[in-house]
Structures are given as structure tokens and as C-alpha cells.
Nucleic acid binder design. Structure first.
Lengths: 218, 218
DNA sequence: GTCTATATGCCGATAGAC
DNA sequence: GTCTATCGGCATATAGAC
């Protein structure tokens, strides 16, 4: 089993501004080696997103990868560890998408870019996003603490832009923490309801960027 | 086992306008008889909300109600049926909160009232709301179809107000279905993150009413 | 690194006494 | 309507051959 964390940031580096097409790459997991470990991981993402972590059996994951149940344990020491690697990767990818999108000369431009990219990521990668956002309780306390650090960084990224806009007078925000959470909520909830037939991720990103901007503009 | 559905609408009838204090009644399940069935049901709500349906065992539910595992089956024929009764009740309660809140002379007043009440309900009843919003996949196809009807009615309630506002020129909405979903999303996602220490449900409702109104106003 | 076979335990649900 | 006892099955994870 190779170390996944070291390679987590590879693909999101390609994203610039609201160039959300870059996050639609199908080869998201190409850095996971060997191929058997990658098949197990992508099978687990699909299964966890479809049925949830607890309802997914190791037999199901193994069979999606074309293996016997026992073969899973050669690559991952437990089902929870598989979830953790997916969750850690997903959180880092989401944070990197935000950091790469935080470009623009005004708080309004930056906010629109952040919301568009974060929303499009949740739509395009709705299976990973579903695991990231809704399977936190299945993590061990230690692993949860690790991803919680990344979650705080994600929240801070949005809050900072809103605070900048308030300072220069382009935004009117009565409750900064509450509005930060609301803006994040809008994008995160996409993972709950999105399916490919519900529209283009980039178009959804643009709509949500507009809605978020209107929520705070003076 | 008594029929729960017939008594679903009792408490939400008390709610008028944005009188969200009425939905904070702690005796939400008082109509479930006998008391043993009610203890099982409230125990199941807490357990499902904490760990999720699949991670909750019938032994856990029974022990929260102070009973042996076997006693559960005197009141409910299966674990899934317990989930269904909770989900059906919760959906009907949420819909009734919306219908009671749809009061006001202008689309703006109506939208603010709807969003305030719907948001406050998700905060105040975040345990029930979590089961309602995140455990749909555990329902049988037949039971899912039944709650899906209620979910469409909830969505329609919001969409109608937005459409009325567009018609009389008080709202500017580029994408009506998309904006409807976004407004609903904001409130629904409250069930994911809300805990009592994060503020007063009524105050959150007011904040979200303001944000939703700004999303659509001309 | 993958397999077959299996250890070990908990799951949902039932049987039958009281 | 509640209990104790238990059924049959499937869960995660391991042992050991190849």
C-alpha cells in the first residue's frame, strides 16, 4: 500500500481561476498505485456514495474491483482506512480547488470564482463529495481530527473573502460566521442532490456564484 | 402498533406565519401510543440521527427504550418500518410548517416567512430532520415513493412563491428550478451541521430569510 | 498478490414461556 | 406486552496454500 497523502495535490494544481473544466478529469485517481489498489479505492468511492459506508460490505468493494474479499486486506488494513484515504484525498482536493480559484482583483470577483469552482467540484465529483460530506461519522476520532483541520481551512478561505469585501465596502454582511456557513452550505448540499442529468457543473457553478454574490452585495 | 400517519398533522397546525416558537414543542411524539412505542420511536430518531440508519442496531434502539431486543417487534414489524414512520411523520411535519408559514401580502413577505419557518424547523428538529434528509436510501422503494410525493409538494411550495414574485416584478430569477433548489438547499443543509450550541433556531431562520430574499430580489 | 477456507462475532428477526 | 433463548445468516478480518 503506497502513501496516498503525498500525491493528493497533483491534479488540482492544474486548476486556475474558474477553469472548472480542469476538475472534470476522469483520471482523478491515477496516482494511486498499484492498479489493484486503485480499483479497490474507486470501487469503494462508488459504493460508499451509493449506499453509504455502513451499508457497504468489503465483499462488495472487492467484487467491484474483480477480487476476492481477502485481497482487499493486502492493500488496505481495514474498511475504515479505505474511507479515511478517500476522505483525506477528497478534502485536500476540495481545499486546493478553492485556493486555486481565489483569484480576482475585487472581493466580488474572488467570491464568484470561489463559489463557482467549489460548486462545480461538488457536482462533477459528486460521488467523492458525498463521501467527504456525509461519511465523517464513520471515521475514527483520530482520522476525523485530521480531516477537520482541512475543513477549517476551507471555511476560512470563504470567510476571508467575505471579510475583505466588508472592509472595502463592497459587501454588507450582518453575521459573518453565519453567512460564511450559508455560502458553504449552498455548494456542499450539491453533493446530496446532484446527478449528471441535472445539468452542467460549470453552469451550476455560475448560477450559484451569482446567488452567493447577491446574498452579500451592498 | 397504532397507525401513526393519521395523527401526523396534529402539532404543526398550531404554527402560524413565522411563529417558529410553536414548532419547538418538546412533546412532538405525544400522539404515538402506547408509551412503549413512543419510547422506541424517539430512541430510534436519536440513534438514526447520531450514527445513521445502517449503523444503528435494533438492540441499541430497544435498550434506549429500556426494553429487550424482542420487545421492539411487538410494536414495529421491522427496523425499516420504524424508519419509514419517522420519515413519513417528519416529511408531513415539514410540509405543514411550510403551508402554515405561507402568509403575507407580498411574495417577498411570503418567501421570508417560508424560509424562516423551514430553516428554524430544521434547526429545532435537527435530529428528525437529519433522518428525513439523509436516510432516504434506506427506505424500501414503495416507502420512498410515498415520501417522494411529500417532497415534491415541499419543493412546489417554494417554487410557487418565487414564480409569483417573478410575475409581479418583485423578484428577478434567471433559473427558476435551480433557484428553488438553492433556496431549499440552504435550509435543508442546516440539518447536517446544526447543534444547539450554534445559536437560536429563530435567529437562524431570520438570517436565512434575509439571505434567500437577497438572492432573488430585483 | 491472489486465492479458498474459515475464525469469530454480531446482525435482524422469531419461538415460546410467563 | 415483555422476557430469555436462539435461529440462520452475513459481517470484518485472518490463515495459509500457491
Amino acid at each position: 500500500m503506497r502513501c496516498l497523502a503525498k500525491r493528493l495535490l497533483s491534479f488540482t494544481r492544474l486548476v486556475q481561476g474558474v477553469n472548472v473544466s480542469a476538475v472534470t478529469s476522469p483520471l482523478v485517481w491515477e496516482h494511486v498505485q498499484p492498479a489493484a489498489a486503485r480499483r479497490l479505492l474507486t470501487g469503494a468511492v462508488d459504493a460508499f456514495a451509493e449506499r453509504g459506508y455502513q451499508a457497504t460490505t468489503t465483499r462488495d468493494i472487492a467484487s467491484r474491483a474483480g477480487m476476492s474479499p481477502a485481497a482487499l486486506y493486502v492493500h488496505y488494513p481495514s474498511k475504515e482506512r479505505l474511507l479515511f484515504e478517500i476522505s483525506l484525498y477528497g478534502h485536500n482536493a476540495a481545499l486546493e480547488v478553492l485556493r486555486s480559484a481565489d483569484a480576482g482583483s475585487t472581493p466580488a470577483d474572488r467570491l464568484r470564482s470561489l463559489v463557482a469552482a467549489f460548486t462545480a467540484w461538488h457536482a462533477e465529483h459528486h460521488t467523492i463529495a458525498r463521501v467527504v460530506q456525509y461519511e465523517l461519522v464513520a471515521l475514527t476520532p483520530e482520522h476525523l481530527a485530521e480531516v477537520a483541520v482541512i475543513r477549517r481551512a476551507i471555511s476560512t478561505q470563504i470567510e476571508q473573502v467575505l471579510a475583505d469585501g466588508v472592509r472595502d465596502g463592497s459587501f454588507a454582511v450582518a453575521d459573518l460566521p453565519g453567512t460564511t456557513l450559508a455560502v458553504l452550505s449552498l455548494s456542499i448540499d450539491v453533493a446530496r442532490w446532484y446527478t449528471p442529468h441535472r445539468g452542467d457543473p460549470a453552469a451550476l457553478g455560475k448560477l450559484y456564484a451569482d446567488l452567493a454574490h447577491r446574498m452579500v452585495q451592498t
